[in-house]
Amino acid sequence: MTEGGVSQPLVSGKALVKRFGDFEAVRGIDIEVNQGEAFGFLGPNGAGKSSTMRMIACVSPRSDGDLRVLGMDPDIDGPRIRARIGVCPQQDNLDTELTVRENLQVYGRFFGLSRAQVREKAVELMEFAQLSDRANAEVESLSGGMKRRLTIARSLVNDPELLLLDEPTTGLDPQARHLLWDRLFRLKQRGVTLIITTHYMDEAEQLCDRLVVMDGGRIVAEGSPSALISRYSSREVLELRFAPGEQAGHEAKVEGLAERVEVLPDRLLLYTANGEAALEQVTARGVRPVSSLVRRSTLEDVFLRLTGRTLVD
């Protein structure tokens, strides 16, 4: 993609809109994803992340605005773009009656690869996905984490220049998630450009160099995870947990102890540079929470600040 030493963005969208009938799923967003970057869409369900991903994947014509993927227009060059990108959908759509190896080979053929190429590629990808010992097992028999790894492996069969991952670890147990993150991290190191949607802030922090926070079809903030945290949140957060319903009564008592206080159903969040110091002062004022916790700020806090809501309900 580098021409004359100047690298053009792999994806560039301007005032991008997606409407389904009267419903506007994406309401005029600007995005730019550069080569080698891991770019994230963070937001709750229904924020417009998947609709945006489908437009980039050339399976959903935009309703308005402009979009270029690999320098081409998806409306005109859909198949040509799709030939060079990889898509890992939110829901695994592997052929469960074929084996692990067969899934990779069949899919590779769809990208115009020769039989010899797909045979070789399948072996390499099974290695990558740590599924070599299950090569001849039908997909039906795999665990959720294995299926997910196979779906990701399958999306790499054409050596994509851009990989789209829609909610890559939703529904997986912690161990399976970490294994998957490790694989995605390796891809990043190999220079594959990643676009990831997630509603998990830890996932976004782990994987994304830069992300946009989406809410209600709009981009509400943009930056690296650390920049977003320092811009929209404090360094530390003091969580004070109370019996449900009692937290609001304590709000007045902690006033002035933090830059900002959020009231959640069962706790107060105090945003402050020094959580321990704030906790001492809280105790000094006679507030007795059921439990307390000092932690670093996360993207969850950024999201709460920007939208007034939590990411995962």
């Binding site: 080569q35 080698g36 198949p79 040509r80 799709r82 030939a83 060079r84 990108i85 990208f111 115009g112 690869l113 190429q117 054409n158 050596d159 994509p160 220049e161 190999r190 220079g191 594959v192």
Partner: peptide, 9 residues
């Protein structure tokens, strides 16, 4: 150096 995709139409 990123390898170009092997996919084609």
């Amino acid at each position: 150096v990123q390898q170009r995709s092997t996919g084609r139409v």
